[in-house]
Design a protein around this nucleic acid. Structure first.
Length: 271
DNA sequence: ATGGTCGAGTATCGA
């Protein structure tokens, strides 16, 4: 039960990431979840709202400062909520054009540089969308290289739309030739990790086939057909303090769920 | 049977 899991000792920073698949549709579930999970920081993706429609007041009432990058507002949109401070907000990349989609926002929370990212869906291997996805991952790497220090405390949280390894999909045979698992996508993710980030979930949980996303169709969730594509990446010094991790499958159940579950990582802050 | 279901917005497209 969450009542026990939600407890944590003093000196812990709880960081979560959740692709909410429309904040308008998901607000009751997000508010409920914030009240029982009580993350210090929550990165959200696919808010699908404009900045003007972002419900900052409702989050404020729950004790959270917020920053949102919504742009046109029809799709994508990323946000950061924090109840431990929210400073130096940067929305988008310097290189973004006027028409660029809203897929990156960063802020400093409790001394940690927090990035919320929504990597484009490649749709099919070789398509123009697939090429754009690989380009975007390289842009993210360049942005980190230019603006962050791997010796500092940095987390990059979000929906990467890449399953890092075959054990992160329900059946590798079902994904042969598919997007999310191709060599080029995994290589682009590895290049980001090689800059100086660690997949914190794997610091804590070694089991195969633990997923963060399940297709709404065909009862995939109930039949355990999913992928682990939502990640919390942290610089090595911070990743070494990861002490607990959970994919909250309860948030994927019940009434009007997102197709993603929240991923929660607890970090020690007292050493 | 080669599908299924959501959310955008209101016909289909995107995931």
């Amino acid at each position: 039960m969450w009542v026990e899991q939600s407890w944590r000792p003093p000196g812990t920073l709880r960081i979560a990431t959740w692709n909410v698949n429309s904040l308008r549709a998901r607000m009751p579930r997000v508010e409920e979840w914030l009240q029982y999970a009580r993350p210090d920081v929550l990165c959200m993706q696919e808010t699908k709202v404009s900045d003007a429609a972002f419900p900052a007041m409702a989050f404020s009432a729950l004790g959270y400062d917020s920053a949102h990058h919504g742009g046109a507002g029809r799709w994508n949109g990323v946000a950061i909520l924090s109840r431990v401070g929210l400073e130096a907000v940067v929305a988008g990349f310097d290189t973004d054009s006027e028409e660029a989609e809203s897929r990156f926002i960063a802020a400093t929370c409790a001394g940690v540089r927090v990035c919320s990212v929504y990597v484009p869906n490649g749709r099919s291997v070789g398509s123009e969308h697939y090429v754009a996805k690989l380009d975007w991952l390289e842009e993210l790497r360049l942005h980190l290289e230019a603006s962050c220090d791997p010796k500092g405390d940095v987390v990059v949280c979000g929906d990467f739309n890449v399953a890092p390894e075959d054990r992160d999909v329900w059946d590798p045979a079902a994904f042969v030739g598919a997007t999310h698992v191709s060599d080029a996508e995994r290589k682009a993710l590895r290049a980001i990790l090689e800059w100086g980030l660690v997949d914190t979930f794997r610091e804590v949980r070694g089991e195969d086939r633990l997923f963060t996303w399940w297709d709404y169709r065909a009862g995939d969730f109930h039949q355990h057909r999913g992928m682990r594509i939502d990640l919390v990446l942290a610089t090595p010094g911070l990743a070494a303090r990861a002490q607990w991790a959970l994919i909250d499958r309860n948030a994927r159940k019940g009434k009007l769920p997102s197709d993603h579950a929240p991923l929660v990582i607890d970090f020690r802050t007292d050493d």
